[in-house]
Simulated scan of single mutants.
Amino acid sequence: MTQPPVPDVLPGAGAHVVLLVDDEPQACKWFARLYGDEFVVWTAESVDQALQLLATSAHAIAVVLTDFRMPGRDGVALLRVLRSDFPHVVRLLASAYADKELAFSAVNQGQVEGILEKPLDDALTRRTLREALAQGAERARHFDQLRQRADSLRETLGFLAHEVATPLATVSGYLSGMRDRHQLAPQLEPGIARLSERRPGEVMHMIDAAQRRTEYAQSLVSTFVQSARDACMGGTGVSLRARDLVQAVQAEYPFEPEEGAWFDGDVEADFELPGRRDLLYLVLCTLVKNALMAMRTAKPERPRLQVRLTRSAPAPGMAATPAIVVIDNGPGIPEAVLSRLTREPVTTRAETGGSGMGLLFCQRVMTSLGGSVSVASELSAGASVTLHFLSMNPNQEPA
């Protein structure tokens, strides 16, 4: 069995290896020597050896060319495993004339996608391998995209479950409070009940707040449904302007009555957003929530939460690109925490249920779009989180 170390062979090339499976050592050496000038060739002398290679390096193998007659399990048995467990691999069978009936049976059953007759014709074999490599590499990219979508969906679902739990817990608390204030009024008509208030207007406050949080939870669930639909269908969602995203968050986020007045949306420097509306909506809601919670812990004299569209350089020396900045004038972030943000789960609100996953989730979404997240803060002077996007027009000059 020959397997060059994957990192030493065409680094970053993805699926690029031709694996020959033949129980004759000389045939393996001959094939590797003859075709190694054009292709990356690995060899295995049995089905078991081939499966060992696939178990550790399936991501690198694009084509398997297998002999039919081998001791133990034959080539068709290997082809069956390839079809079920490694669908990105192109399956070829090397067949002698006497094996033709079995070979065509394998073709008809969908186990093999091409046959090369022994002795191998050099020109035909090279042409077949080139076509199979291109097909295998494309399949590998396709299955990798499916895997990434599934991973993204799982991550979004986990984060979404945490985010939905917060407003639902608040709704449950308000309903419990209303139950405590509920009093039957036997002196009134049957079916009439009375809610006793400890403070004027508190029942309506609980009803309004519960409704806002219910609507917000519904918007988050809609976000996940759209993410799931896009992941299954391979869609990218509807294009969106940054102005529309900011205005949607301002209209749908469940601000407390006084908090709505803190919000200031500066959307003059509008631009088109990449990616899906649902994930970016969740990102911006997360940043707004973080800013509000920071200001609640140490409320400034005049609380202010600004979401501004602008152009900003992702790093010193780089050109300015479109950006969304979320700014608050809360207590700020300690240096020890600031240096770890966007790199690991870290929170200053663990005692109130903070997990530190919010900003990390935002970072991963932005990275998937080719952008980035930067955080700046001074103690007692607030914090700003900037979402840096790639410019939709690479020829556009910085503002």
Rank of each mutant, 00 (worst) to 15 (best):
P5E: 14
V6E: 10
V9R: 13
V9A: 09
G14K: 03
V18D: 02
P25Q: 09
W30S: 13
L34S: 08
T43W: 01
Q49P: 11
A55M: 03
L65H: 06
L65M: 07
F68A: 06
G72Y: 05
D74W: 09
G75K: 04
L82I: 04
D85M: 02
F86E: 04
H88F: 01
A106N: 06
A137H: 14
E138R: 14
L146W: 06
Q148S: 06
E155R: 15
H162F: 08
H162C: 04
L168V: 03
G173F: 03
L188W: 10
E189N: 10
G191I: 10
G191E: 09
I192S: 10
L195E: 00
M206W: 07
A210S: 10
R212D: 00
R213C: 03
E215P: 07
Q218M: 01
S219H: 00
F224H: 06
Q226N: 12
Q226T: 10
D230K: 06
D244I: 05
L245T: 03
Q247F: 09
Y253Q: 00
E256G: 01
E256Y: 01
E256R: 01
P257H: 04
G260T: 01
F263H: 09
G265T: 00
G265N: 02
G275H: 02
R276D: 11
C285L: 01
A291I: 11
M293I: 08
A298K: 13
L305N: 02
L309G: 04
A315I: 07
A315M: 10
M318W: 09
A319E: 10
A320Q: 09
V326N: 08
P331R: 01
A336D: 15
V337I: 14
S339G: 13
T342W: 11
P345Y: 00
T348W: 05
T352Q: 05
G353P: 00
S355R: 04
S355M: 00
M357W: 05
E378Q: 15
A381M: 12
S384W: 08
V385H: 06
V385L: 12
M392G: 11
A399S: 14
